[in-house]
């Protein structure tokens, strides 16, 4: 079986071929993700159990700060807060890794050929695993606090898939830009904490003056949180218009980021 490949300066946009190749490397994706998850806790006493504890501890801290110390009047505030928090944690985890991904992995990028998207997918997969663990904790807490609970919660995997697509596209963009612009990676933490306040995580969109509501409505993470809240906190069907909007937005956003990534791929290589 022979397959002829051409290497030329033009960028290719052959999605089928790219994802076929990624599929052929699925063992590497699995091993690399396992490594990502293990490295973080290697040598610590609790090991992989930390990945349960860490989100739990931060959820508890946020709960006490925002429900006991400040005075927010939202029914079932615990569930309200956590359904936004888990989405936010996932976003932060991926974005902080993405900008430095190229320089962290330059030792293999320069020596072995493999589809580079796998490094990003692996970050997304390990983030999604953490998300699912935290989501399990949220469900557990809903049971304990006897919060109302409907079958609409089964929308969560679909919204999670949308979030994964959004984070994957954004990471494609950030990895190549991060390698090209060295000042991007140090400024990301500041941008993230700024974004925390313009995202309705601890407060609700309704609490914001109408003048600024557009800022939240045009923000992809705020949209995702609003979808999560519909199905987890309110227990209603996700808003159809918002769902379709998110879907279309993410497809367009993905195509754009994919194009940038493949445009910059070799420039980034020659720079590093």
């Amino acid at each position: 079986m022979s397959q002829i490949v051409y290497r030329s300066p033009q960028t290719r946009f052959d999605l089928v071929k790219i994802y076929k190749e990624i599929w052929a490397y699925r063992s590497f994706l699995l091993n690399w993700t396992k490594r990502e998850l293990e490295i973080r806790y290697k040598g610590s006493f609790l090991g992989i159990i930390w990945s349960f504890f860490n989100p739990l501890l931060s959820l508890i801290v946020y709960f006490f700060v925002f429900s006991r110390i400040t005075n927010i009047q939202i029914p079932n505030y615990l569930v309200f807060l956590f359904s936004g928090m888990i989405c936010w944690f996932f976003f932060v985890q991926v974005v902080t890794r993405a900008t430095s991904l190229m320089s962290d992995s330059s030792s293999i990028l320069k020596k072995v050929y493999f589809p580079q998207e796998i490094l990003i997918i692996s970050v997304i997969v390990s983030g999604a695993i953490n998300f699912l663990i935290s989501f399990g904790l949220v469900v557990l807490m809903m049971l304990i606090t006897k919060a109302p609970f409907t079958l609409h919660i089964f929308w969560v995997p679909i919204i999670l898939a949308l979030q994964c697509l959004f984070l994957y596209s954004t990471s494609l963009l950030l990895t190549s830009l991060g390698a090209l612009i060295k000042d991007l990676s140090p400024i990301i933490p500041t941008l993230i904490s700024l974004m925390f306040f313009v995202t309705p995580i601890v407060y609700s969109v309704e609490a914001i003056s109408k003048k600024y509501a557009w800022v939240l409505n045009s923000q992809p993470i705020a949209n995702l949180i609003s979808l999560y809240r519909d199905v987890i906190h309110l227990g209603v069907h996700p808003d159809w218009i918002l769902l379709i909007y998110c879907f279309v937005f993410n497809i367009v956003w993905y195509l754009f980021c994919h194009w940038v990534f493949h445009r910059l791929r070799f420039i980034v290589y020659d720079l590093s």
Partner: peptide, 29 residues
């Protein structure tokens, strides 16, 4: 396929294995 040509083209027929450096991608721990 790690780098790309600026001009011209390269045709390759077959599955490639590169040994540019041995043990790259190993993790010490």
């Amino acid at each position: 396929g790690i780098s790309s040509p600026t001009n011209g083209s390269v045709m390759i027929d077959g599955k490639i294995t590169t040994m540019l450096e041995l043990g790259s991608g190993f993790h010490g721990d």
